[in-house]
């Protein structure tokens, strides 16, 4: 008889594929994504559906799924706010409702340490109970905060489902194309003159290992997930041999705003906050309760953005 599977939404993204690779052979994986899964192993069950559609419900209905890892969250700064919101927030509420309806016992929702938001008055190591301030400043992260909060409320409304919200620090890796990885690939990146915040990174494979650790029975709740440590932004750029271009912060925002509008830049101006202030977190609880420890060193993690 077939084993009960682990469903992964957003499996076709770079992070999803890394997770599938890690779980392949250990679990029966059920992939859900509206994008095709390039390089999919033949024995991996894949459903090319939009998570907002009823067709996706059938996957849960028939698929005999014991756990869900929900990464179907999209960040595309060029996408309209409505599309973003509908896909991310509506999609999440629907998927989680199906989990209740079809008896999925474990749900791992991928959030991000970004939900706290960079700020000059942040503590150096934010714990899970810190307020989620990011939504004040970033419309793009607002969805992520909404998803995170929804998953938390789910935790109380459906105690029979073991829900875990993981908030990893910036995920980087050779194939990862998120803002932090892209930023670290620029040879002459902007920095903000006179600011040098501490930065935490986690290698994509460590981030995947953390999500797998969260699958363990008994683990439930909200957890920050950190990589091998923290370093000043300047030290990370030096490690990569970058030549930073310091820009005064009061010029950088309007300038980047214009460049972004004209499509000369792919980073929206609020991302500059990450170059100015810290948003570093304490991952101690997750490490203690799951035994998770990153395998990559800080240097390996940094170097991973330029390929293995």
């Amino acid at each position: 008889m077939e084993r009960d599977g682990v469903a992964i939404t957003g499996i076709s993204g770079n992070l999803g594929r890394a997770l599938a690779k890690l779980l392949h052979g250990r679990e029966r994986i059920v992939g859900i994504d509206r994008r095709p899964f390039r390089g999919r192993p033949k024995d991996l069950e894949m459903h090319e559906v939009d998570i907002r559609r009823n067709k996706a419900e059938q996957v849960f209905q028939k698929g005999r799924i014991r756990a869900l890892i929900h990464m179907g969250i999209m960040h595309d700064p060029r996408m309209s706010v409505e599309d973003h919101h509908s896909f991310n927030v509506l999609g999440t509420t629907r998927v989680l409702d199906w989990c209740v309806r079809y008896g999925v016992r474990k749900v791992v929702v991928l959030s991000s340490a970004d939900v706290y938001g960079p700020s000059p008055d942040n503590s150096n190591f934010l714990t899970e109970d810190a307020p989620l301030m990011a939504s004040q400043r970033y419309s793009d992260v607002r969805d992520l905060v909404a998803v995170d909060m929804y998953a938390q409320s789910f935790f109380y409304r459906h105690p029979q489902v073991e829900t875990v919200v993981v908030r990893p620090v910036h995920i980087v890796g050779p194939s990862i194309k998120n803002a932090p990885s892209n930023y670290l690939r620029i040879q002459r990146p902007w920095t903000l003159l006179g600011f040098d915040p501490m930065v935490q990174l986690i290698h994509v494979e460590d981030a995947c290992a953390a999500m797998v650790a969260a699958l363990r029975p008994g683990v439930r709740g909200v957890y920050n997930v950190v990589g091998p440590g923290e370093a000043p932004l300047s030290a990370i750029l030096r490690e990569l041999g970058r030549e930073p271009v310091p820009v005064p912060h009061f010029l950088a925002r309007p300038l980047l705003g214009q460049l972004f509008k004209l499509r000369f830049a792919s980073f929206p101006p609020p991302e500059l906050d990450h170059l100015q202030w810290g948003c570093t977190v304490d991952g101690g609880r997750f490490a203690k309760e799951t035994g998770f420890a990153p395998r990559r060193t800080m240097k390996e993690t940094i170097q991973s953005v330029v390929g293995e």
């Binding site: 000059p120 008055d121 003159l193 040098d196 000043p232 005064p248 202030w277």
Partner: peptide
């Protein structure tokens, strides 16, 4: 003070 980290140079100097 919480406003110190919002000042250029002083913020990174203080942290180091």
């Amino acid at each position: 003070e919480k406003w110190v980290p919002s000042l250029p140079f002083i913020s990174s100097f203080m942290a180091r």
